[in-house]
Design a protein around this nucleic acid. Structure first.
Lengths: 314, 314
DNA sequence: GAGTCTCCATAAATTAAAACTATTTAAATA
DNA sequence: TATTTAAATAGTTTTAATTTATGGAGACTC
């Protein structure tokens, strides 16, 4: 290795001697023997071709070259200390950035609360939330742009193997009706009743929409027969449409908590049908897991997992 | 020794890997084997308790902690390089030549002492003193024949812009009389008294003479009315003439310290007139400043700047 | 001014740390 | 699946730093 003319240890010794005014005291301070100090300074002087200390009298005094070197020495060692502190902070979550991915739904209704809790506990870690489609989120996790994500849809097959996919919680996609809708009074609807409704849905590209369609189809319904009043691309818009009496919809329960509490929207049960999807936490096991990501997974996620299903091991 | 969490070599390796994107290439760059690089990075990661590189793919990518560390790493290594350069410069004072320019006056009375101090500190740097007129000194500094000069007169306008001119000290041009001169008894002379004196002056080409003439003229005196007994081209000759009672003269105080102390010459004050000139340090900023020159300017000049005026920033 | 004390330098031995060679493992490419 | 490339690992060698032990020089003491 093309050699550096000095080592950090030598600088540390230099600094100690300058501070103590003595080789011996410096040695004591650094818990080494006096010859070790002497030899290192000699090495330093040899390599830099300068004399650093005047060893004449009782005190070891810096020469001009020594003072010059000491100046740099202090700056360098300070930088080293700072680096250590920064790294320590990162380790103890007093710094750094956590990048979280989510779909529209979880990103809008779930993540803000989670991130809020996380930031409350670790206010020095900045958190970035990226809302994308399931597909794109998956790829971002794969190539390390996102540390951790929650998805509600199906990953492309190749990613399924590459990533660690952990079932996290069950998200019910509730059938919601305008509160004044005639069917709101019935305790339980039947699947057949769905054909009588006008639906306001997400556009057909959306993951949630695909999930709903698939579940309905799997349950034996002919989704072609369902009447779709309109397709909107925002859950909020759909909620408003439903509240305005324009139609019914399947919406994630997490997105309508407020409206249910306020009674402005009605959640209907269907006797022989449950529309539920698994929310999954995905991470990339082949990549470095930041401490922040680890903590988020271990300490924050479980606090919100009790949406409907029991906690899952993370 | 209470251990430092990393060594400069490790930082160098880290930097190389980050730059090359590969352990192997970094190893080649540093002329070591690949395992050496791997081991050092492993040590670094172990000691800092962080992961620095994602070794997943074909490229070694920095983690967040790695990026953080790299930042400090670059700063530290830069400081190290700077320190080396500074030391090298200092070392180069173990040889080489410093060429200093001066006028007759400063060259005779001031520079020898300065050069003496410099040579005492840097006995291996040989110093050459060139005594010339202000004008010629200026040109020599401009074309690099002289590293640094002290002048007491006015530079030609074109040089004034080319060179760095730093006010250095104030040199009083004292009115000196033979000790036995009748006016020597008066505490303070008046400007008018000058007309009563016989002057022994430098020849009219000399910078000092020009300066004196201009100052007297500016103060309202009619220099034509001043009686000039004789013109000599050497300060020593003038001093002798004054001591012999041949007349008065304006002489730089630096040149008559010894005579004043011995009382062989009398320095008179003039109530309403101060004949002073600025001594200036000139260097050529567009040329390489030798370390010796820098040291002379920074460390030697200030020690003598307290001629009359307070220290000026150099 | 001789003795003692302190401090630094030196020598030789020990210990520890990096480096190398050789090989294995893992991922990416073809 | 075979091949290539990079990094990790194991074992050995070499190098460097530390230690113990000792010698010498200046400073303080009586």
């Amino acid at each position: 290795m093309p050699e550096l003319p000095f080592t950090l240890d030598q600088l540390r010794i230099l600094k100690a001697i300058a501070a103590q005014g003595s080789f011996k005291k410096a040695a004591d301070l650094l818990y080494v023997t006096q010859p070790a100090v002497s030899l290192q300074i000699q090495n330093l002087e040899k390599q830099l071709e300068i004399t650093i200390f005047d060893r004449g009298g009782r005190k070891a005094l810096l020469t001009e070259a020594g003072r010059l070197l000491l100046e740099y020495c202090e700056r360098i060692l300070n930088q080293c200390d700072e680096a250590c502190k920064a790294i320590e902070d990162l380790n103890s979550l007093k710094g750094g950035t956590l990048v979280i991915g989510a779909s529209q739904t979880t990103g809008t209704y779930l993540m803000p609360r989670m991130i809020g809790l996380f930031r409350q506990k670790y206010p020095d870690v900045s958190v970035q939330l990226q809302v994308h489609s399931t597909r794109r989120t998956g790829w971002s996790v794969a190539n390390g742009q996102i540390d951790l994500a929650i998805i509600g849809g199906q990953l492309p097959g190749d990613l399924e193997n590459l990533l660690q996919v952990i079932p996290y919680a069950t998200d019910e996609l509730a059938l919601v009706l305008p509160s004044n809708h005639p069917l709101s009074n019935k305790k339980e609807l039947l699947k057949e009743d769905l054909y009588k409704l006008n639906f306001v849905t997400l556009d057909s590209q959306s993951t949630t929409r695909k999930v709903v369609d698939k579940l309905l189809q799997d349950s034996g319904l002919d989704i072609q027969r369902l009447k779709i009043e309109m397709e909107l691309n925002s859950l909020e818009a759909i909620k408003n449409a439903v509240q305005s009496g324009l139609g019914a919809s399947f919406l994630p329960v997490v997105s309508i908590e407020r409206e249910l509490a306020a009674g402005t929207i009605h959640k209907a049960s269907i006797t022989d049908l449950e529309v539920k999807r698994e929310l999954k936490v995905i991470t990339n096991p082949s990549r470095y897991t930041s401490r922040a990501s680890e903590v988020f997974k271990k300490n924050i996620l479980p606090k919100f997992a009790c949406l409907e299903s029991p906690l899952r091991q993370l």
